[in-house]
Design a binder for these strands. Sequence first.
DNA 1: TTGACATTAAAACAGTTGTTTGATACAAAT
DNA 2: ATTTGTATCAAACAACTGTTTTAATGTCAA
Lengths: 204, 204
Amino acid sequence: MTTPENPRERLLDAAGEIFAEKGFKGATVREIIDRAGVNIAAVNYYFRDKERLYIEAVKHAACGQGEEPHLSWSPDTPPAQKLRDIIRFQLLKLLDPNRPAWLARLIMRELIQPSEACAELAREYIEPRSKILFGVVRELLPPGTPNRKVFLTAFSIVGQCHFYCSHKPIIRILIGEDEYQRLDPTTLAEHITQFTLRALKAEE
Amino acid sequence: MTTPENPRERLLDAAGEIFAEKGFKGATVREIIDRAGVNIAAVNYYFRDKERLYIEAVKHAACGQGEEPHLSWSPDTPPAQKLRDIIRFQLLKLLDPNRPAWLARLIMRELIQPSEACAELAREYIEPRSKILFGVVRELLPPGTPNRKVFLTAFSIVGQCHFYCSHKPIIRILIGEDEYQRLDPTTLAEHITQFTLRALKAEE
DNA sequence: TTGACATTAAAACAGTTGTTTGATACAAAT
DNA sequence: ATTTGTATCAAACAACTGTTTTAATGTCAA
C-alpha cells in the first residue's frame, strides 16, 4: 500500500490504525498527525474535530478494505467440503497476520461499546455470511432438522473459529509463546473441520 | 449486593463498573471516586495509582464475584459427566443474568487490548481452571494423545461456550430477540456437551 | 505584479487529567 | 496527656488533552 500524498487520506489511514489500537479516548490527535506526517491543524481543517475524524476513519477502513474472494461452489460440491472451505476461509481471515488486523479490533470495540459509526456495519457484513453457513449446516444435518438445532450447530462452528481470534492473548499465555507460534490457520482449520464433521456424522 | 463500607472495596466495585463502561483511558479517577463516595486521595492511598486500581478491579471482578461452587467429583465419575459439569458450570457463569453485565465487557476489553491485568488474570485465575479441563479432555481422548490435540480440543469446547457471551449482541441480531430469549444456559450446555461428546466418541 | 484563495505551520489556549501535598481527625497505645 | 499511626480531606500541581488562533506559504487566474 503506497502512502497517499494528500493529507486527508494520510490522516484517515493513520487514524484508523491508531484508533483501532488504542480506542477513541486512548488515541491522541497528536499521535495520529505524527504518524500521518501532517500538521495538527489539518484535523480541524479537513475534518471538524476528533470525533468526526474517527467516524470518517471507520467508514474509510470498512469500505476501502478491498474486494473479498467470494465463496462459490459448483452445484455438486459435497457439503463437507463447503464446510471445510468456510472454516478455512474464516480462520485465514481472522488470523492471517498479513491482513490488516486492526479492522477486526475496530469491530470488536464496536461490539463492546457500539457507536453510530459502524452500528450497521456488523449487520451488513455478518448477516449475509451467516446465511451461507446456515445453509451448509442444514445440508449436513438430517432433513427436517429444526431451525434451532441448525444455528446452534452453526454457532458451535463459528465459536470454535473466533475463539482463536477473540481470546488470542489468553491462549498465548496458556500454552506459551513457542507453542502458539506453531498454531497456523491451516492446522486449526483442519482440526475444527474434523471435530465438527465427526460431531455431525455421529448425529444420525 | 450491599455496598461495603470500607473504601477499598467501594473503589474496586465502582472502578470495575466504570472501567468496563468506558475503558481504561475513558474512565476518570474523579468519576470513580465520585461513584464510590470516597476522597480522590484514596486511590493513591489504597492502590498506588490508576493503573494498579484497574488491575485489581479486573481481578476483583473476575475472581471475587462471590464464592464459586468447587467442581469436585468422586473418583469413579465418568469423564463424560465431568465434561458435562464443566460446560454447564461455565455457561451458567457466563450467561447468568444475576452477574453484573459489565464484567463481560471488562474482560473483553482486556482481550482486545491486553494490559498487565490480562496476564495476571490468566495466570492466577484461568490457568488453574484450564488445567482441570485439560485433564478431563485427556481422559476422554485415547491414551497417548499428543498435548497439542488435547488443548486444541479444549479450545474447541471453551470456544463454543464463550461465543454465546462474547458475541451476544450479534447472536441477538442474527436469530432475533424472541429466539434469543429461549436460549437458556441449560439448553446450550446440553447441545455443546452432545456435540463435543459425539466428536470425541467418533475419534477412535 | 496583483489579489484571492487554499493549504500548511507554529504557538497559544482553556479545560481536564492523574497525582501529590500538607493539614486534619480519630483511635489506640505508651 | 502525649505519642504514634491510620485514615480522610480539600487544595494545588504539573503534564497532557482537543481545539483555536494567527501568520506564513504556495498556487493560479486576472
